[in-house]
Design a protein around this nucleic acid. Structure first.
Lengths: 205, 205
DNA sequence: AAAAGTACCGACCGATCGGTACAATGCAAA
DNA sequence: TTTGCATTGTACCGATCGGTCGGTACTTTT
């Protein structure tokens, strides 16, 4: 159980009380396992130890809960990526850093990320747009690095479609990637970055 | 829970009545739009023009309907890919052909493919395994081509993880790829194949 | 003509869905 | 001690869920 009496202070819209964070984490895990529509609210209640009444004291609706999970974790991802993209390292180094960052967040918040990319259809149309905009904000960050790389001659010029395709390789990864035994997160991130670098490096021999 | 063996009664999947084919097509579209658990059986009835009684005359259960959609289209994909993989073209040419084949099937049966890869979690555990086995059968076909390419020196040696990553690029594509105006299917297939070829080509200058 | 088979309908089943109403609890300020 | 608010459990709502049922109309077989 949770004695969250300390949380009385009013939070900024984007922030969430500790109790709500806990609910989001538990719900994300459930949603990732059996799908948003496959998990009932009372099940979320059981898993969090709350009755429905208490649950609805913390969340506005089931859909809001999903939406909040998606936006918060996408915003985390975007914020971290922006920091990397704005550094003045060479494009290839920033690409590696982006890959590492993606993979470490992915492993740390796998359920949330899965939900983020797999359950968009469960949202109302307006909210779908909101989440999709976050996705393309993230794409924009990668795009910028590829453009910088092309400008400096490190990379060949890439079309938008090519960048989307490559990013898809990352986005699909949380459906299957495991840290199997000795394979560490950094090794996987390195592999993805290497694959990407090979696909985009300039042709000049 | 699920007493019948997984294989036991999906065997005849290939021979489905025309009515059932129609139901599967309509249902796949619905499932792709709003998710398997987000679509009710009576809704499938409305969309097909059948009452629930008639619907259940043709399908065994809602889950069977989903499972049949997944297996039939995965088997189509696998069968076509096997034909390509067994040809005696160079590995790079077979890679291109595989990409074309994937994209044309993807565009022709987009809803079915989406469901195939996104709704696995909605299945019982036993059936999940069945579908996942089909996925890895498909992976096996690609894997063989990469191994052939490595043997002939066309490609560098690739790990299993790298191949999975690259295939993920394809699998994620139906979530965003569009044949926008003038961009034809073949052009997109070419782009994916090119990206892949660059990522895997051997390093010897 | 009788019987069997195919294709369909819509009412109905118990269970569960997301969500609400409200009383009870605990705790801090007064 | 009393007041007041944050927090919670329980009982409950109408709607919908997947699925079954008895029955109907039409065709094919015998």
């Amino acid at each position: 159980m949770q004695q969250a009496g300390v949380e009385a202070r009013s939070e900024r819209a984007a922030e969430a009380s500790e109790t709500k964070r806990m609910i989001m984490t538990v719900a994300a895990k459930l949603f990732a396992e059996r799908g948003y529509d496959g998990v009932g609210i009372s099940e979320v209640g059981e898993a969090t130890g709350f009755g429905k009444g208490a649950l609805y004291y913390h969340i506005k609706s089931k859909e809001d809960l999903l939406f909040d999970i998606m936006t918060i974790y996408m915003m985390d991802l975007i914020a971290a990526a922006r920091g990397i993209a704005e550094s003045d390292l060479p494009a290839a180094a920033r690409l590696s850093a982006l890959s590492s960052n993606f993979m470490s967040i992915m492993f740390a918040s796998r359920a949330e990320m899965t939900v983020c990319f797999r359950e968009v259809h469960a949202l109302s149309e307006a909210r779908q747009k909101g989440v999709l905009r976050l996705h393309s904000e993230y794409l924009e960050i990668w795009d910028r690095i590829f453009r910088d790389g092309a400008a400096s001659g490190e990379f060949r010029p890439m079309t938008r479609l090519e960048i989307k395709a490559l990013l898809g390789m990352f986005f699909y990864s949380f459906l299957w990637v495991k840290t199997e035994g000795s394979i560490r997160v950094e090794a996987i991130a390195g592999m993805f970055a290497d694959l990407t670098r090979r696909a985009v490096r300039s042709d000049r021999a």
